[in-house]
């Protein structure tokens, strides 16, 4: 139906046309996919059934797309500057693909991963120290409580002068935003481990260091993952801000730049790329978590 709207309703002519009718292409591909779906999943009834459950939602999504199409390209009730046609957004995605994905996204990914992993490692180390050593708790806890709640982006003025390059500064900011929730959750996870587990392990001949790594940390894993998750969300935020303010590259910077150029089609394209990327990262994160915490979920079949 969305395809029909796209093809049959003539454009109002108020929007600059895209080079090719990408929206029609995309809708056509979707239509073909849905028509052929029973054939594609012929041998996999389970997958098909799972997809079928989502049909209503998919239909609603296409309806929304059609409405958007009507609102922009067809009837043009929305301001043309800020609401480009789906066609144009898709055309940016298709034509700027290399630049968007390889240059911008690649640069963002490097920054994000460097920051996330250094922050996560630092957070784990801090959390473990605080969890197991009274001395560390005494000295580090006030530091965390005092410095942690400062939004990492508030450090930007200092970071810009303190670090040799904006890139290292941005890595530091992202690391900081991951470090805080990770260390808090790790230490509280370890402090909340039932003492009985340590007692049992000590009667089984485990020494202190062995207990730290084989009892304390695994038992704290659920909370550690909670911390890493909040850290990941905070790191996305910091990444975007850092790119828009200091780092002259990356997907966040792209959006900022295109907004200044008033090419909102590119802004939307950037947003779509971000949505897909972060969605995938979070999904991956939960996959890893489910793998590690398989003992907790009770899903293992035997």
């Amino acid at each position: 139906m969305a395809l029909a709207v796209q093809l049959l309703w003539p454009d109002s002519g108020k929007h600059p046309p895209a080079d090719k009718p990408y929206c029609a292409y995309a809708l056509g591909i979707c239509l073909v996919f849905f028509l052929l779906r029973p054939l594609i999943f012929l041998g996999r009834a389970e997958t098909l059934a799972r997809l079928r459950e989502k049909d209503l939602f998919t239909a609603a999504a296409f309806l929304l797309l059609a409405l958007l199409d009507i609102g922009t390209a067809k009837a043009t009730v929305l301001p043309t500057l800020f609401f480009p046609t789906p066609d144009r957004v898709l055309s940016v995605l298709a034509e700027d693909f290399r630049y968007l994905i390889i240059d911008c996204l690649g640069s963002s990914a490097k920054l994000l991963l460097a920051g996330f992993f250094s922050g996560a490692l630092a957070g784990l180390a801090t959390g473990i120290f605080i969890g197991f050593s009274k001395n560390a708790a005494y000295w580090l806890n006030p530091l965390i409580k005092f410095l942690g709640p400062i939004p990492p982006t508030a450090w930007i003025p200092i970071v810009l002068v303190a670090f040799p390059t904006t890139w290292t500064g941005a890595v530091f900011l992202i690391a900081l935003s991951v470090w805080f929730p990770t260390s808090v959750m790790t230490s509280s996870g370890i402090l909340n481990v039932q003492n009985a587990y340590f007692e049992v392990s000590s009667t089984l001949g485990a020494r202190r260091v062995y207990q730290v790594f084989m009892v304390g940390i695994p038992a704290a894993m659920p909370l550690i993952f909670t911390g890493l998750f909040s850290g990941a969300c905070a790191s996305f935020l910091t990444l975007m801000t850092a790119e828009m303010i200091g780092v002259k590259n990356g997907i966040g910077w792209y959006i900022h730049w295109q907004r200044q150029m008033l090419s909102y089609a590119n802004v939307y394209a950037g947003l779509i790329v971000i949505a897909i990327t972060f969605y995938s990262l979070i999904t991956l994160f939960f996959r890893v978590r489910d793998r590690v915490l398989v003992w907790q979920k009770g899903m293992i079949k035997w």
Binding site: T203, L204, Q296
Partner: peptide, 19 residues
């Protein structure tokens, strides 16, 4: 102190849930 030559079993089995 605790040692492996004295095993202990509690009322709650306290199996390590992650293993």
């Amino acid at each position: 102190g605790p040692g492996a030559e004295r095993g202990l079993v509690f009322q709650n089995p306290y199996l390590f849930p992650w293993l």
